[in-house]
Design a protein around this nucleic acid. Structure first.
Length: 738
DNA sequence: CTTTATGGTTTTTTT
DNA sequence: AACCATAAAG
């Protein structure tokens, strides 16, 4: 039976049924891009008799992958277990485990999340004698990930730069990679880089996957980075079909290495490419769409499209101004009440979006005060909570005994009297014998400088881990975790160490973890897929914020604009439209960055079906001080005809105009000030040497603020640290001597 | 050696 | 809230 194509419009139908090998679909917001992709896959299987095993479909989140799998199954009326569908990271993690023999890691490798990566870097820094006070480990982590995103190796980085930090980077980078391999671990970026290496070193393996994946389909192509692009380029050969869908106006991951030119240059990479444009929007009322279109035309870097809708005008976009962030929250709640009581909306129809997670606090407080149910996506993520990470670290060391980062995390948690000094001694011993840290713990008695009492404690811990490693072969992952959490004393620790409220919530999280492991194994086994402990750990590490959103709950959704990509709601609030916050301060200087912020707002606005509110506050607490703010320049770029001011304030058109004029002047001032603070930049840089009359020679550790008010933290000889004000410090900068 | 208390610092967005 | 450095107590 053929699948029904009557639910598609003409362009969609052509795009679904095209026999061309290389296809690019430029799909505007709400134009049915997921639908097209879903039907395409169903069409291939049903009409073209393509086997599900021959299809590789890449989505941006795991949630999207699961939904797409379910919808295809529904269209075809059959289960399609063998279809490869998932994110780049999860798909290539799977391939890496299959091809692990070719690698410097084995198939039990652990995937380090950002937190683990920073811990690994700290270890590397201390082995290289680099002080963490001078150079932040997080900075190294960010720079290394950036380099990996650009597919740069340590040797590709410049070594003789004026910046001390940049000079250290290649060595830290090199050692960090080495450290990961020793611990049988990979980071997020390696999940893409290592398969490229495997493909390049073993043409036969690449050939195998080229033969297997006859059809490759990629969603959100505008947000692919260089490594992802390279993987696709390798996999797509003569006979392969490549089908990509994307929207350059919705590219919002430049900071993570996403390269918009991947989509802009698709027809240069594949000269015979057929291009479809999906320009009819089915989601938003026309005033909302007009407003969003009017905003995004201010971007230069785009292919340009004409997104239109048959829908009625609907209501204009409402701009709400308020005194401060608490007032902003109050106004939003007022309007939510209005939406709920007069317009008969339910909670789940409403989303509140923000630029930074920190903004959720004031909103949550106000929603709670008004007993409105809400869920927050992301923020402090479930699997990144301390108590969860501690239990997971036990599981990681059981799955991968070489994982030293996880081992260090739990060797003295709960406290068993094994401190840093002891662990360092064991590590040294283990390095000398060329064995892992865990094995070293098994042979702790060989170390003369460790007392027998201490050695006994270590041995006891080692045996505990050994016991559970053996048990892991016999009992289920869920049973293992529960038994472990009790026997190690984690449960009683959580009961005793916190106040009642805190301890209850942490224990609840632990029990939720048990449930999720059990659920995972059960589901996976039902589907005939890998339900092992390693598979669970992998899933958890690669899980995105939005993946854990339970949309069956009737609640208002709070999340960042990034998390909102791909979603839609009848009512949307986009908050904090102020210079420095949205666009974010550090993204206002470079035009490319400002364009990305603008796209981010475009994404936010196009989530709305019927009612869109844009809010800003005239002052906002930042860190510990309240600062006056300037409304975002984006508010002035949205066509005035699509906007109405606050319904609760009487205002006529001339007032709207006056306000616009006033805002424009403020924005000019904002940019002027930014320029000045840039121009005033002092000769000081972090890491450079300075001389002070009384304190002598020292190294700059940190700079805060600008110009004369800049605060300079200096570490002087003899380990004396001082915080100085640039204006009064009277510092002399010294030549850097190597 | 290890533990515990204290204070300071830290956040942009995420696989 | 989590993480560090530091100092003092056990």
């Amino acid at each position: 039976m053929a699948i029904a194509l009557k639910d598609l419009n003409d362009v969609q139908r052509q795009a679904v049924t095209s026999a061309k090998k290389r296809i690019l679909i430029l799909a505007g917001a709400g134009s049915g891009k997921t639908r097209t992709l879903t039907y395409r896959i169903a069409h291939l299987i049903n009409q073209k008799k393509v086997k599900p095993t021959e299809i590789l479909a890449v989505t941006f989140t795991n949630k999207a992958a699961n939904e797409m799998r379910a919808r295809i199954a529904q269209l075809l009326n059959l289960e399609i277990k063998q279809l490869w569908i998932g994110t780049f990271h999860s798909i290539f993690a799977r391939i890496l485990r299959i091809e692990a023999e070719q690698l410097a890691v084995n198939r039990h490798f652990t995937i380090y999340d950002t937190d683990d990566q920073v811990n690994a870097i700290k270890k590397v820094m201390s082995s290289l004698n680099i002080a963490q006070q001078l150079h932040s480990p997080k900075m190294f982590q960010a720079k290394i990930s950036q380099a990996k995103n650009r597919m740069q190796q340590p040797k590709d980085l410049e070594r003789n730069t004026p910046d001390i930090f940049d000079n250290l980077l290649p060595e830290v980078f090199e050692k960090y990679n080495h450290f990961l391999r020793e611990n049988n671990a990979v980071d997020f970026d390696d999940l893409l880089l290592l398969p490229i290496e495997v493909f390049d070193d073993h043409p036969a393996i690449l050939e195998k996957y080229r033969k297997k994946f006859k059809h490759i389909l990629i969603d959100e192509y505008q947000d692919t980075n260089k490594a992802q692009y390279s993987l696709v380029r390798r996999l797509v050969f003569d006979k392969n079909f490549i089908y990509v869908v994307g929207d350059e106006d919705q590219s919002i991951y430049r900071w993570r290495g996403a390269d918009i030119s991947n989509i802009l240059n698709f027809n240069q990479d594949y000269p015979d490419a057929q291009i479809f444009r999906l320009e009819e929007n089915y989601r938003s009322n026309s005033l909302i769409l007009e407003g969003a279109n009017g905003l995004v035309v201010h971007n230069r870097e785009r292919l340009g499209k004409n997104l239109w809708t048959k829908k009625s005008k609907g209501e204009p976009i409402t701009v709400l101004d308020s005194e401060n962030e608490n007032d902003e929250a109050k106004r939003i709640v007022e309007y939510i009440h209005n939406e709920i009581f007069t317009r008969k909306r339910s909670f789940k129809d409403i989303a509140i979006l923000f630029r930074t997670n920190a903004q959720s606090r004031a909103l949550e407080d106000e929603l709670r005060r008004n007993a409105l149910s809400y869920v927050v996506v992301g923020g402090v993520r479930f699997y990144e909570r301390k108590e969860i990470k501690d239990v997971l670290a036990y599981l990681k060391i059981i799955a991968n005994p070489l994982d030293g980062v996880s081992l260090r995390r739990i060797v003295n948690f709960p406290l068993r009297g094994i401190g840093d000094t002891t662990v360092n001694k064991i590590e040294k011993h283990a390095e000398a014998l060329n064995i892992s840290l865990l094995e070293g713990m098994g042979r702790v008695k060989e170390i003369a400088t460790i007392s027998s009492g201490m050695a006994n404690r270590v041995t006891e811990f080692y045996e505990l881990i050994s016991k559970y490693r053996a048990l892991s072969q016999e009992i289920s992952a869920a049973e293992l975790t529960s038994s472990l959490a009790h026997e190690t004393g984690i449960i009683s620790h959580l009961k005793n160490e916190y106040d009642q409220y805190e301890s209850e919530s942490r224990l609840e999280n632990i029990y939720e973890l048990f449930n999720s492991i059990e659920h995972f194994s059960r589901e996976r086994e039902k589907e005939g897929r890998d339900g092992s402990l390693i598979a669970f750990l992998e899933e958890v590490t690669l899980m995105s914020d939005i993946d854990s959103l339970d949309d069956s709950k009737n609640a208002i959704t709070l999340m960042t604009l990034h998390s909102a990509k791909g979603l839609e709601f009848p009512v949307v609030f986009v908050t904090g439209l102020e210079m420095g916050l949205f666009p974010l301060q550090r993204n206002t200087a470079e035009p490319e960055e400002l364009e990305e912020e603008r796209r981010l707002l475009y994404v936010g606005m196009t989530r709305a079906e019927e009612n869109l509110y844009l809010t800003y506050a005239r002052s906002r607490r930042k860190y510990n001080t309240t600062v006056a703010t300037v409304p975002s320049l984006f508010l002035d770029e949205i066509p005035a005809a699509t906007i109405q001011l606050d319904l609760n304030q009487t205002s006529d058109r001339s007032q709207v105009k006056n306000r616009r004029q006033a805002r424009r002047e403020k924005i000019m001032d904002y940019f002027r000030q930014e320029d000045e603070s840039q121009a005033n930049d002092t000769p000081y840089t972090v890491g450079s040497m300075v001389y002070h009359e009384t304190f002598g020679k020292g190294k700059i550790v940190k700079l805060e603020g600008h110009g004369e008010k800049m605060k300079i933290s200096v570490r002087f000889e003899g380990n004396v640290s001082k915080k100085l004000i640039a204006q009064y410090a009277n510092l002399t900068t010294l030549e850097i001597s190597e």
